[in-house]
Simulated scan of single mutants.
Amino acid sequence: MTDFFNQYGSQIIAKSAEHLYISAIALALGIVIAVPLGIVLTRTPKVANVVISITSALQTVPSLALLALMIPFFGVGKLPAIIALFIYSLLPILRNTYIGMKGVDANYRDVAKGMGMTNFESIRMVELPLAMPTIMAGIRLAAVYVIAWATLASYIGAGGLGDMIFSGLNNYQPPLIFAGTIPVTILALLADFILGKLEQKLTPQQVREAQ
């Protein structure tokens, strides 16, 4: 085990940081775009069906094919990988945001309106906190997806732990495969755990107790 870490330790750390960088940016972009869009779509149901159908269709494109499709437009490297992973992160976040916001009891909206809240205040102070568990479930799922699929980004020169996995496969070196696979699994579990803790912080206590 000591020899293993002596040989691959620095490479594992460097590739893990690279992998996390790609995944974090893609997920952050997904959250910034999909959460506000999901909220807006609850106010426009007809448009919602079209937008969610389009994002669902994008989700059906094989991840390797989507990465390859990015090359003519963005070349190779981290940028096309981030864009492809961002596209994959959209559906779970968008769908859960839409479902979570639509699932808020209409009585809460009526009470907020009766208190003189604007539409924006109702969303920010009432609906969003109540929908937070569902929204965070989508973000957690997207995080695991993105971290797992980021291994394929190695094929277009984006780096990350996929470099070690595919190098091990190509050269018949199981230690390299394990050196790439185990950190990916740990990163996915760690991301899910951290986001779970964040969900608890963002969800009002009354909502947590009612679940």
Score class of each variant (00 low, 15 high):
Y108S: 09
V126H: 12
S167Q: 06
V111Q: 08
M164L: 04
S122M: 14
V47C: 12
I123A: 09
K201C: 14
M125H: 12
G157A: 02
Q11A: 14
Q11D: 15
I165L: 03
A112D: 13
Q205H: 15
G30A: 10
V144M: 02
I186P: 10
E199D: 09
P36S: 03
P45N: 03
A65L: 09
A153L: 07
L130A: 15
Y98N: 05
I33W: 07
L58K: 02
N96M: 04
M164G: 07
A28E: 05
P133A: 13
M1N: 07
T2I: 10
M125P: 15
K15V: 01
L85G: 07
D110Q: 13
D192C: 06
F178M: 06
V40L: 14
L141R: 03
K15F: 00
I13T: 15
T181K: 05
P80V: 08
V61S: 11
K197N: 14
A179L: 01
V32P: 04
F4T: 05
Y88N: 07
V61Q: 12
Y145T: 10
I33A: 05
P175L: 00
F74I: 09
A34N: 07
T97H: 10
T134Q: 12
P175N: 03
L41V: 04
D3V: 02
L189F: 04
V207L: 15
I177T: 04
G160C: 11
P175M: 01
M1S: 07
I12D: 15
L85E: 00
Y88D: 02
A84E: 02
N119W: 13
P80G: 07
L79P: 05
R95F: 09
V144I: 07
V126M: 13
A106Q: 06
T134D: 10
V61C: 11
N170T: 03
A106P: 08
T42H: 05
T44E: 01
N170R: 03
Q206A: 15
Y145R: 13
P45C: 06
L90M: 12
M115A: 10
T185C: 13
